[in-house]
Amino acid sequence: MRTSVSWLLFTAVSAAALGAGAAGQPKPKPIWARNAPLPHGFNAGEAFPTIALPSAADGRPVSLAAFRGKKVIVNIFASW
């Protein structure tokens, strides 16, 4: 995966948008998402998929539903 250039790009776009979101106003899609829409469950206001995925440590299925009751930052990436 490329270095933090891509991280800086989309997080920089979001600074003002985060405030707008908190105020309930619609925020523009980030540049990278305008032609590559996210699937259902990955957009603001939608329920994140509860599909279970195997733990990278031991292969046991784990669902994001297991984290309910807590605020979660989901960081999806690849080590390349």
């Binding site: 995966m1 329920a47 994001l64 989901v74 690849a78």
Partner: peptide, 13 residues
């Protein structure tokens, strides 16, 4: 990727 989401305590993005 990468993609970072903030999900609330009820599982809503």
């Amino acid at each position: 990727v990468p993609l970072t989401l903030a999900v609330d305590e009820h599982g809503i993005v």
